[in-house]
Amino acid sequence: MRAAVLHEIGQDKLEVLDDVEAVGFGPGKVRIRVRATGLCHSDLSAMNGVLPQPAPFVPGHEGAGEILEVGEGVRHLQAGDRVVVCWLPACGACPACRRGQTELCLAGFMNAGTPNYKRPGGDLFGFAGTGTFTEEVVVDAGCAVPIPDDVPFDIAALIGCGVTTGLGAALNTADVEAGSSVAVIGCGGVGISAIQGARLRGAAEIVAVDPVPARREAALKFGASRAVSPDELPDAKQQVTGGEGFD
Rank of each mutant, 00 (worst) to 15 (best):
I206C: 04
R201V: 00
T173M: 06
M110L: 12
R99A: 13
A174D: 07
G197D: 04
T165M: 04
E103G: 02
A3P: 04
G80I: 00
P56F: 05
N172A: 03
A22G: 10
I147S: 07
H7N: 14
T165H: 04
I9V: 15
C86N: 15
A203R: 03
L6Q: 13
A204I: 00
S225R: 12
P148Y: 13
A90C: 04
D247Y: 12
D210G: 04
R215G: 11
C187T: 06
G108I: 09
G202D: 01
R99F: 00
Q196I: 08
I185P: 00
A55C: 10
D154P: 01
R98K: 13
P148I: 13
V176K: 01
A112F: 14
V16A: 02
Q238N: 02
E8A: 15
T173S: 14
G100W: 03
D43E: 11
G179M: 02
G168Q: 04
S45L: 09
K221I: 03
A183V: 14
V58W: 01
T132R: 07
E232M: 08
Q53M: 15
A93I: 02
P234Q: 10
V190N: 00
G243N: 12
D19L: 00
D12T: 14
F57Q: 02
G38L: 12
G168L: 10
A156M: 10
P213L: 07
T241G: 01
A90K: 06
C187M: 10
H76D: 13
A90P: 05
D12N: 14
G126L: 11
G245L: 11
C143L: 01
P146Q: 12
V84T: 09
P120E: 03
V50T: 12
E72A: 14
V58T: 03
V163M: 13
V50G: 04
V240L: 15
I155P: 00
R99N: 04
A79M: 05
L68R: 13
V34P: 11
A236Q: 04
V30Y: 05
Q196P: 06
D43R: 03
Q239D: 12
A157E: 09
A36N: 09
G126W: 08
G166C: 06
K237M: 05
A55Y: 04
L167Y: 08
V209E: 02
G28F: 13
L220W: 08
D154A: 11
A96E: 11
M47L: 05
P152D: 09
A156I: 10
A36D: 10
D247N: 12
L39F: 14
S180M: 09
I67Y: 09
C94Q: 01
A208E: 02
T37F: 15
K118H: 14
A174C: 08
P152Y: 06
V58F: 02
C97R: 03
G71R: 03
E217S: 06
D43Y: 06
G243L: 12
V190H: 00
G100I: 03
G65S: 09
R33P: 01
H61P: 08
T173N: 11
D154S: 12
V50R: 08
A144I: 07
T173C: 10
K13R: 15
A208V: 02
S181D: 03
G242C: 07
C91G: 03
I185A: 07
V228L: 13
G108L: 05
H7S: 15
R33T: 07
I67L: 11
D210L: 03
E217N: 07
D19Q: 01
